[in-house]
Design a protein around this nucleic acid. Structure first.
Length: 731
DNA sequence: GACCTGCTGCGGTTTG
């Protein structure tokens, strides 16, 4: 029987109505896998590859041909974005045209009435965010078993966003809790365009039996890739003039077509959008360049998304990662990247937005801006680390190597969240039951009973008061716990900063973080236009703006970027190599030659430690951000001031010698050494834990003291032969 | 030296 014939009659009718000549290969294979087995399935296909249909045509067929008598939702879909859920619900409603299966989108913008009706008569497909599912547990814990009693499968969309993230652990935990409530397993179907390590993806989907997960990868689809790296040197003209030259190049290359320009930060998005707007104005051309980032109003963002999707007018979005994944914005001619990205995985995701039409190439224009090098130039300037990283990223992209998600983290912040959620769901529970639900059946398997007890005691401290224990031993929400769980901000496992809202007239333009100093009279670039601040209301967190002629991009706040070991290793290979990639323009090639000359001149090709001056050293760690930062902490704990760059550390001390201190650190055998002033609280519920627990969490995720002794050995090795990795232990 | 994601229930008022 052909795959088409295995589908239910109403589904076949819908397919014929589409006028499809045949099903795609991935859809045929998914139909056979889903209808021919009970196994979990991963469907890996590009964004336009028909993943959603691959999963839902057979899943819906199964529901139609083998209807269940019990009530409850037949299929569950979890998606990371509200806009994606709205889109997918429309597509599924169309597919279900000839069936009587309801399709219910469920997120914060869905009206209460729709949700009320779905709870009263659950059935068909429920499409929901992780946060709204969390809210169901907290508010309607007793009804979970009824709602999902006979659910056939859960579809996990954009699965790559879940791997290694706090939100992914939350989803894993919620799925186990559904299974425990209804008493049997829930089949999982994962969808993604960009999964690096398939074994990790399998293990995430089915931790107890990764080998049983069927993996379906779409064939081909790899369109031709055209690349250029353009170098720019900021000379005496200053930074702004250089930005203008980059903007002028973008204007010439992109005008008249639709494109995405990834500018790296919200501040840069505003800066380049402003330059490009001015170029349109000067030449009396209609506006076709618009900014897009998370702080802009929903209204402005949807205007731009709709314009891109319609494709009738040339449109270039200057954007941050807001346009990296999610809803279908159609095909763009070219992806431009200003400055090096932070991961190959993100670059790959971005490239997926271009070259989607059959026969059209994917085009990447990489812009690298470097400073003019003078005698006092900094290490990153002399070694052209921005350009070198951009080339390393492209190199890895071409080889199809990208960063695997981090594994092995304890995720204690999300554990705290789930402890509160399970207690709220059941109105109270025992410590043993909690440990079973979350750490044995659930995703927190690295947390043993002793560590779990320490977490519970931290939450029960009088000053924390998240939980308390009744006389019979039952764990209940404490005074603060009640407050936190009651508020709607509880449902998300990630944290968001407080923000000002920006208005012009009664019209909201977007938001800015409250940390920065803003005062009336200041000039601002925002939402692609220029403003003067009229009024700052600190109580209501509102800022009133009026149009002006000047202005500069605001500071949106920052977090350190994390570069993987694999990228830094590639950067060193480039610095030590001779080859000049053919996709470099003349300036970029000159800059790479300068970087290589500087690398040799500093003798970094021969020695891992060089002395910049008395009490000032440069170390070539050749490691990514995590390990380099860990060594930096150990040096700081011993009185050094340090500055970290990709694969390098600059360490200064007036009293200590770097070699003897590295010997000491090596002798400490990976014992953590963290200066008292270093913060270890990064995640939403971290402030409720003890410093000791935060250290455990950091050691499991972002600090690598275990690798420090080997790193020290490599640095101390007197070998002149640097061809073998200095990360090996020579002792 | 960075980015992104999410949100319930209830009480009061208005409208047909």
């Amino acid at each position: 029987m052909s795959a088409f014939d295995r589908l239910a009659q109403p589904i076949r009718k819908w397919i014929r109505g589409r006028g499809w000549r045949e099903m795609r290969d991935i859809q045929v294979r998914a139909t056979e896998a889903i209808l021919g087995s009970e196994a979990d399935v991963i469907v890996a296909a590009s964004t336009a590859g028909g993943k959603t249909e691959s999963a839902f045509l057979p899943l819906l067929s199964d529901v139609i041909d083998r209807p269940s008598d019990a009530g409850g939702f037949d299929l569950l879909y979890i998606g990371p974005l509200k806009a994606l859920i709205t889109d997918q619900a429309e597509r599924l409603t169309s597919i279900c045209e000839w069936t009587d299966l309801p399709v219910t989108p469920w997120h914060g913008d869905v009206p209460q009435g729709v949700k009320g009706r779905a709870i009263k008569a659950p059935g068909g497909v429920l499409l929901i965010t992780p946060e709204s599912l969390e809210a169901l547990f907290v508010r309607r814990g007793a009804e979970i078993a009824r709602l999902f009693a006979e659910t056939r499968a859960v579809v996990l969309d954009e699965m790559h966003t879940m791997l290694g993230s706090e939100r992914g652990v939350q989803v894993q935990s919620l799925l186990t809790r559904i299974e425990l409530a209804r008493g049997h397993r829930l089949r999982r179907v994962g969808l993604s365009a960009t999964l690096g390590d398939m074994d990790l993806a399998r293990a995430w989907l089915h931790p107890d039996d990764p080998g049983a997960v069927l993996l379906l990868v779409a064939q081909g689809g790899g369109s031709e890739l055209r690349l250029q790296v353009k170098g720019f040197v900021a000379g005496k003209e200053g930074a702004e003039a250089t930005e203008r030259r980059v903007a002028a190049d973008l204007f010439t290359r992109l005008r008249g077509t639709s494109n995405l320009v990834f500018a790296g930060s919200r501040g840069n998005v505003e800066t380049f959008a402003d330059h490009l707007r001015q170029l349109c104005e000067t030449q009396a051309l209609p506006q076709e360049f618009f900014p897009h980032h998370a702080s802009l109003s929903r209204e402005h963002r949807s205007f731009l998304e709709t314009r891109l999707k319609k494709g009738s007018l040339p449109t270039t979005a200057v954007c941050t990662s807001t346009l990296e994944l999610g809803i279908d914005i159609g095909d763009v001619t070219c992806v431009a990247q200003v400055g090096a990205p932070f991961s190959v995985a993100a670059l790959r995701q971005r490239m997926g937005r271009s070259g989607r039409r059959a026969g059209a190439p994917a085009i990447l224009r990489q812009y690298a801006i470097e400073s003019a090098v003078e005698a006092a130039a900094t290490l990153p300037d002399r070694l052209r680390l921005g350009l070198v990283r951009a080339i390393a990223m492209i190199d890895l992209l071409l080889k199809d190597h990208f960063e695997p998600p981090a594994t092995g983290a304890l995720h204690l912040s999300t554990l705290v969240h789930q402890i509160l959620s399970v207690i709220a769901e059941r109105g109270g529970t025992s410590a043993a039951r909690l440990h079973h639900v979350l750490c044995r059946a659930g995703p927190f398997r690295a947390v043993d009973a002793a560590l779990f007890g320490e977490v519970l005691r931290a939450l029960g401290r009088p000053e924390t008061a998240l939980i308390e224990q009744a006389a019979d031993g039952l764990l209940l929400l404490g005074r603060e716990g009640e407050k936190i769980v009651e508020h709607h901000s509880f449902y998300a496992v990630f944290q968001t900063p407080k923000e000002y809202r920006l208005f012009e007239g009664g019209h909201e333009l977007g938001t800015l973080p409250v940390e920065q100093v803003l005062a009336p009279g200041m000039l601002l670039l925002f939402s692609g236009r220029r403003w003067r601040i009229m009024e700052v209301d600190d109580r209501d967190k509102v800022i009133l703006l009026t149009p002006s002629l000047g202005g500069k991009a605001p500071v949106f706040g920052s977090a350190p970027g994390i570069i993987h070991d694999m990228v830094v290793a590639r950067m060193f290979a480039l610095l030590e190599g001779q080859d000049v990639p053919i996709y470099l323009d003349e300036t970029a090639a000159d800059l790479l030659a300068e970087a290589r000359a500087a690398f040799r001149h500093m003798e970094l090709d021969r020695r891992p430690i060089i002395e910049r001056g008395p009490g000032a050293w440069t170390l070539a760690t050749r490691a990514g951000t995590a390990l380099t930062a860990t060594l930096a902490l150990a040096l700081q704990a011993r009185g050094f001031t340090v500055a970290a760059h990709d694969g390098f550390l600059e360490a200064d001390s007036e009293t200590r010698d770097i070699r003897s201190v590295l010997e000491e650190i090596r002798a400490a055998q990976g014992e953590p050494e963290v200066p008292a002033e270093a913060t270890l609280a990064f995640e939403k519920f971290h402030p409720n834990l003890t410093r000791n627990l935060l250290l455990y969490d950091a050691l499991s995720a972002r600090l690598k003291f275990g690798e420090v002794p080997a790193l020290c050995s490599g640095l101390l090795s007197s070998s002149e032969d640097m061809s073998s990795s200095n990360l090996q232990d020579y002792s």
